[in-house]
């Protein structure tokens, strides 16, 4: 564990807390893509199949349980909470996310570290996480306006990815045999998807104005 990895995990956790806070405090999920949230729930469940077979650390197990539970809770709220579900921007959230699931799984069948059920689901989760933000970015682009908490949610999610890249650079330089092509290449692709959002987030922060995305 290095400082970049810890910062990455903490900003990831913070992003989920911001999202839960938004949903809880405003009883609204407007501006949030349910499809992206469903993809994250699939990502965590598929990746943490090793929860019962490999023990790494108490921290690791705790975080895995938090990520699975929070992502399922968010999806549950958006689907079934009587007030929250009414604020869902259904007509804006039309990205065909099943394509992403299918494509990620197909890629995992081709590119994986070992041909075992766990390893294929692990690779699948890495590929799916890389593109899971797309429905969310498309929704924001369509609605144009981004409320503060939604903007901060995506900002922290992007920060988490940026810290993970620094973590890999650090590990590459300090660990003798650190090569993880699948995770690193997917991670760079995932972070690149946030570049546009970060640009507009930075502009609005600099001008102290509300975050707006161009149509």
């Amino acid at each position: 564990m290095n400082i970049f990895r810890l910062a990455g995990d903490m900003t990831h956790l913070l992003s989920i807390l911001v999202l839960l806070l938004k949903i809880y405090a405003t009883k609204s999920c407007s501006g949030i893509s349910r499809k992206t949230q469903e993809l994250y729930a699939i990502v965590f469940v598929a990746r943490y199949l090793d929860l019962f077979t490999d023990f790494i650390s108490v921290y690791n197990t705790f975080m895995k349980v938090v990520f699975i539970a929070s992502s399922l809770a968010i999806v549950w709220c958006m689907r079934f909470h009587p007030m929250v579900r009414r604020s869902y921007d259904r007509e804006l959230d039309t990205f065909r996310h099943y394509f992403l699931v299918g494509a990620s799984f197909a890629l995992a069948l081709i590119l994986h570290e070992k041909f075992t059920v766990q390893e294929i689901f692990w690779a699948f989760s890495i590929y799916l996480e890389a593109v899971a933000i797309l429905p969310q970015l498309v929704l924001l682009q369509r609605s144009g306006n981004v409320d503060n908490l939604t903007g901060q949610y995506i900002f922290f999610l992007g920060a988490y990815r940026a810290f993970y890249i620094l973590n890999w650079i650090y590990r590459y330089l300090t660990e003798p045999h650190f090569t993880r092509w699948i995770a690193c290449v997917s991670g760079v692709v995932q972070t690149a998807l946030y570049a546009d959002f970060f640009y507009y987030y930075f502009i609005s922060w600099k001008n102290n104005s509300k975050l707006k995305l161009p149509a």
Binding site: R5, D9, D54, I56, N60, M63, W122, E175, A183
Partner: peptide
């Protein structure tokens, strides 16, 4: 030396 688990990241 530390044994590094294969998927030790989240």
């Amino acid at each position: 030396a530390d044994v590094i688990a294969e998927h030790d990241e989240l």
